[in-house]
Every structure is written in structure tokens, then in C-alpha cells.
Computed example of a mutant assay.
Amino acid sequence: MKVLILCTGNSCRSQMAHGFLQSFDSRIRVESAGTEASGKLNSAAVKVMSETGIDISRHTSDSVDKYINEEWDYVITVCGGANENCPAFFGKVKHRLHIGFDDPSHAVGTEEFIQSEFYRVRDEIKEAFFKLYNEEIKLKL
């Protein structure tokens, strides 16, 4: 089973989703990428994931071009807000899904509020991807 998780910058939401989905089942090959990959991970995303016991610090922020010629069982976009453009993937894909989340890296306000946004989005990603895993992906393994 091969799953590609896409967003724009590939530094935060797609990386968290990648970490969670991979942690649910080692039989799944999970990759994440961005249409405008930042080339680095968001340090707050790495921190909030480490608090769940998942280390994403060695993930890389890659361009979707790296994966365009591969076949995928699932390609899942995770962009959220109405002002964001979710990337399109034109490679060979069996299932295309969109599960949108706010981008916590765009949160403004106090340090405490911004941190709370990373926790909120992290927990939403975990819940949504665990549901997808249990209700769909696990049944196809």
C-alpha cells in the first residue's frame, strides 16, 4: 500500500499526517510532498509530534515532482482554508482524497495561542487519519 500526502509547503500538516499514518501500520509506505516544498520542517510541528512519541525530525520536505512518475494507492491533500490552493496530482492514483486542515503555521497571536493551534491541528490530523486508516486503508491491506 502506497500513500502520498500532499500540501503546498510540505513542512507542517502533511508531515504530521505522514508521521501518524506511518505509525498506525508499518506495512504502509507513506510519503509526503508539496507543490512548493519549503525544503525544511516546521520546528513547532516536529515538537508537537515528538510529544506523541512520533519523531518526524528526519523527514524531508520534498517536491511533488519527486513522486509524479510513481503509482499510488492513495493521494491525500491536506490543505485547509478557502484561501489556499490544494495541489493537484496528475500521476497514476487509485484513490484521491481531500482531508483539509487549518495551517497552524499561519496562526497569529500570543505564543500560547499559536502553540495551542499546533496542538489542535495535530490532534485533528491524528483523528482524521486514524479514522481513514480504520475505515478504509486497513481493509485493503
Rank of each mutant, 00 (worst) to 15 (best):
H106S: 14
N134T: 06
L132W: 11
T77I: 01
E127M: 08
G80Q: 10
Y133R: 02
V93K: 01
I99E: 07
A82H: 11
I54F: 15
R122C: 11
V64N: 00
G34V: 00
I114R: 12
S61Y: 01
R122K: 14
D102R: 08
A128H: 11
G100H: 06
I68R: 13
D102W: 00
K92T: 08
E71I: 06
D102S: 10
P87F: 01
V30D: 09
S43E: 15
I125W: 00
K94A: 08
C12E: 13
A88Q: 12
H18R: 06
E127C: 14
L139C: 03
K140T: 14
C12A: 14
Y133N: 05
G34P: 09
H18D: 13
M16R: 07
S26E: 14
V46G: 11
D62Q: 12
A17P: 01
K140M: 12
S11G: 15
F20Y: 15
W72G: 02
G91F: 10
Y119T: 07
D123G: 11
C86H: 04
E71S: 12
E51W: 04
V46F: 07
G109M: 02
L141Y: 04
I99W: 04
N85V: 15
R58H: 14
G109Y: 03
K94N: 12
G100D: 09
T110Y: 00
K2N: 10
L139F: 05
K92E: 02
L97F: 05
S61I: 01
V48A: 13
G53S: 09
